[in-house]
Design a protein around this nucleic acid. Structure first.
Lengths: 179, 179
DNA sequence: GGGAGATGATTAACATGTTAAGTTATTTCC
DNA sequence: GGAAATAACTTAACATGTTAATCATCTCCC
């Protein structure tokens, strides 16, 4: 179908592309920053998912194994920070990865609350199996978009993140609390 | 706590920041494009979530209502495309929003398969209640990051998305199929 | 006009995101 | 030294992401 064919079926033909001034208490939708970031990220991840899937890995599982490859061992909280996962997600995934013997887990020596995680030989082998394809995809993305531009994008995203760092939770009450 | 205190507790002090050359069959982790995009998006969404939550809306529900505000009515498939949601997610959310009387749904006139959705008066009222806070947050983000830079970022994200548009699924077999 | 295939939408099943509550171990501080 | 506050996970509960399967219509073509 590849083309819209709805707006002239209900007998009015209004608001054909939502780009004009229908009724909107807000700015346009496709201009929203979260949407732009989401769409861009999805466009990128769409390239990687099939390969990961072929190796029985989800994106998040892959992130964790990738992070573990860079260190000897790491505590769960640190891993959550590095792999950018929330605690509960990480807990579930680690349980699964440990069950598949892709990682190993032990208690920290001096603090029984902390768990220390490391990648297993099997996990490393899996990484090495996936890496070539993954790197090839990344290279192709870089080629298409341009290495210079890619670096610039990274930079701008980093600055954005930093810009918003200390922007405390703008609760509704807080925002309307000055009149 | 606000500072790391783990790497010197297990008695070795190695790989303190994972930035050096531990063992890695791949490029560095924090340089990955998906991670940068994810972190940036999260930094942005973190600002909006509390306000939405105060009004009983999730990010996705908000996206849908926002999209519906721009048109009189729209078919589900089109809505999925505009709000950038997969069909199953959209189905569940529409069920919920309809239950809360924030939207209305009817069958298309000439095709009983298609469903046509529109926002209700109650839904519009909700949008109008949330919009001021939401716009204020967006304005603050723009102020901090810079309007020029924000537009530039949008542009670059759009180009990235377009660059990857026709990059067919790089299955493993496909990638290694030329030696 | 009727059946094969395509299409729009939903349901199913599993994995993760998100917030809150619970568990166990540690630290503080009286 | 022990109760209360903290910390590090983990579980729980609910919402969404993701893929596959299902269901109901529609279209096409014989």
């Amino acid at each position: 179908m590849a083309r819209k064919k709805s707006s002239d079926e209900t007998g009015a033909g209004q608001a054909d592309d939502a780009a004009s001034s229908r009724r909107g208490p807000m700015r346009e939708f496709s201009r929203s920053l979260p949407m732009s970031l989401l769409r861009a990220r999805e466009a990128v991840m769409r390239q990687f998912r099939p390969s990961l899937r072929n190796h029985g890995l989800t994106e998040q599982q892959w992130r964790i194994l990738r992070a573990l490859t860079a260190v000897d061992e790491i505590e769960v909280t640190e891993l959550a920070r590095v792999a950018f996962l929330l605690g509960p997600s990480l807990s579930r995934i680690l349980r699964d990865l440990e069950g598949r013997a892709l990682i190993e887990r032990k208690a920290a020596e001096n603090d029984a609350r902390r768990a220390v995680v490391s990648i297993s030989a099997k996990g490393l082998k899996l990484i090495e199996a996936v890496a070539p394809t993954s790197e090839a995809i990344y290279a192709e993305i870089t080629r298409r978009y341009g290495a210079r531009k890619l670096a610039e994008l990274h930079e701008m995203l980093g600055v954005l993140e930093a810009s918003l760092a200390g922007m405390g939770s703008a609760d509704d009450a807080e925002v309307e609390a000055d009149d």
